[in-house]
């Protein structure tokens, strides 16, 4: 986790209010994220998750007008002092809806668009595009037009386009929404591999904890523009289960099952966050 590997993101008292909105979308956010961390960012609909992510690559305040306060550093540099184009080399953003970020006539051209605009050599662009398409599993799609792809294929292409920028941070805003569950697991696995191999910091916004829980080490929960829980996934789920459940967060079904059994005094162990640990604990009890 954070500490030894250095800070890549540091927010202090960050606040934001969209122009025309009556309340703050972000309210006094302070958080430090270390290079190479895998953070799951969650919270009820409209809690400010996407707003926080938009701050990280400067879409806020550069494109979404409003009033920003506090401080936000990405890789040691204040976001306020950088342009979005500069920040996009550091922070790659995969949007909720992949259609919003695909526009070229072929998949390959779409993936190449970012690196081409960095003024890199031909060889470097070629190398990055091939690597990114391979990593996101889009090689077979390279000559197709993005608009003729299915939602899941589009999401992979969007990921490839972001990877080709070789960012130090990737933000994925509900990246698996449009994917079938198998593909969703594959994408999350691919993102986790990228983190392990390249030290990329990964921030995933997701309602479905069952999907991301196994990769994320850290969970950050937001509500009404504030951070209301932050820690290791297992610790937070065990200590805050009822509160999180009250916030309307989609907790893993095994954790829910366990909390129900625990309430009836039938089990006493900490809440499992994935199926394997529940199987182990239940097998042990049932063998008695």
């Amino acid at each position: 986790m954070a500490g030894t590997q250095g800070e890549i993101i540091a927010a202090r008292g960050l606040g934001f209010q969209y122009a025309g909105s009556a309340s703050k979308a972000l309210d006094d956010i302070s958080i430090v994220i270390g290079q190479g961390e895998f953070v799951l960012l969650t919270g009820p609909s409209g809690c400010g998750k996407t707003t926080l992510c938009r701050c990280l690559n400067g879409l806020i305040p550069n494109f979404h007008p409003g009033e920003i306060s506090g401080e936000l550093l990405v890789d040691g540099v204040s976001v306020a002092a950088e342009t979005t184009s500069e920040l996009s080399r550091k922070v790659g953003y995969v949007f909720q809806n992949p259609e919003n970020q695909l526009f070229a006539l072929t998949v390959e051209k779409d993936v190449a668009f970012g690196p081409e605009n960095l003024g890199l050599t031909r060889e470097e662009i070629r190398g990055r595009v091939d690597w990114a398409m391979e990593a996101a599993g889009t090689v077979a799609l390279k000559d197709l037009a993005p608009y003729e792809l299915s939602g899941g294929q589009q999401q992979r292409v969007a990921l490839a386009g972001v990877l080709a920028m070789k960012p130090s941070v990737i933000v994925l805003d509900e990246p698996t929404s449009f994917l079938d569950p198998r593909t969703a697991e594959e994408i999350m696995g691919a993102v986790d591999d990228l983190r392990r191999e390249n030290g990329i910091t990964v921030i995933v916004v997701e309602h479905r904890l069952d999907l991301v829980g196994r990769y994320a080490e850290r969970i950050v929960v937001m509500d009404h523009g504030r951070i209301v829980a932050d820690g290791k996934v297992e610790d937070v789920l065990d200590a805050e289960f009822d509160r999180l459940s009250g916030l309307g967060i989609g907790l893993p079904k095994v954790s829910l099952l366990w909390s129900l059994l625990k309430r009836d005094g039938l089990v006493s162990e900490r809440l499992p966050t994935h199926v394997e640990s529940a199987v182990k604990m239940l097998s042990q009890r049932l063998s008695n």
């Binding site: 079938d180 198998r182 079904k253 099952l257 199926v275």
Partner: peptide
């Protein structure tokens, strides 16, 4: 169909040895 089992189905398929039914999908 490239799906994954719901967590309860995963759990109960692995607890099959204890005489549980396998078609359990809801909590």
């Amino acid at each position: 169909a490239s799906l994954v089992k719901p967590q309860m189905a995963k759990l109960f398929s692995q607890l099959g040895g204890f005489g549980f039914p396998r078609d359990v999908v809801d909590v």
